Simulated scan of single mutants.
Amino acid sequence: MLIFGLRTVVRQLGVVTLICRNCGNTAAQVLSRRVTKFSLFFVPLFPVRTKYGMQCTFCAASYTISKDEATRLAVH
């Protein structure tokens, strides 16, 4: 018997103040990284997918961003 699956972990990288792409308001944007890992017997082995995203604290809209943009924003 083999037990395998995928597990996604979301980690907050920081909060930056930017203009929201959705509502146009200047508000805090939460920068996060979402990593999906392949698991065997409930032990995460290797990442399958990594996505970066932003979520507006004013309108709660979320959208994906590139790794380069996330790295640039996380430094500030």
Results as ranks from 00 to 15, higher is better:
8 T>W: 06
65 I>N: 02
34 R>V: 06
26 T>A: 14
67 K>F: 10
55 Q>L: 10
58 F>R: 13
46 F>D: 02
11 R>S: 06
39 S>P: 00
37 K>Y: 13
43 V>W: 12
29 Q>T: 03
59 C>V: 10
12 Q>S: 12
30 V>E: 02
36 T>A: 14
23 C>S: 04
48 V>C: 08
9 V>T: 13
11 R>H: 13
75 V>M: 12
44 P>Q: 02
65 I>H: 01
20 C>W: 00
28 A>E: 15
63 Y>C: 06
1 M>Y: 05
35 V>G: 01
66 S>P: 02
2 L>D: 07
22 N>Y: 11
64 T>R: 06
30 V>W: 01
4 F>I: 10
69 E>L: 04
28 A>R: 10
27 A>S: 10
4 F>L: 07
8 T>M: 09
71 T>L: 15
57 T>N: 07
75 V>R: 08
53 G>L: 02
50 T>R: 09
2 L>T: 08
61 A>T: 04
36 T>C: 08
59 C>R: 03
55 Q>H: 09
53 G>T: 01
1 M>S: 13
69 E>H: 07
38 F>P: 00
56 C>R: 00
46 F>L: 08
19 I>M: 08
45 L>E: 05
32 S>T: 08
39 S>D: 05
14 G>M: 05
59 C>Q: 12
59 C>K: 08
76 H>Q: 15
42 F>R: 09
53 G>W: 00
60 A>Y: 14
70 A>L: 01
76 H>Y: 12
7 R>D: 10
32 S>M: 08
42 F>M: 12
52 Y>L: 05
34 R>F: 05
13 L>Q: 03
69 E>Y: 04
38 F>T: 03
21 R>M: 08
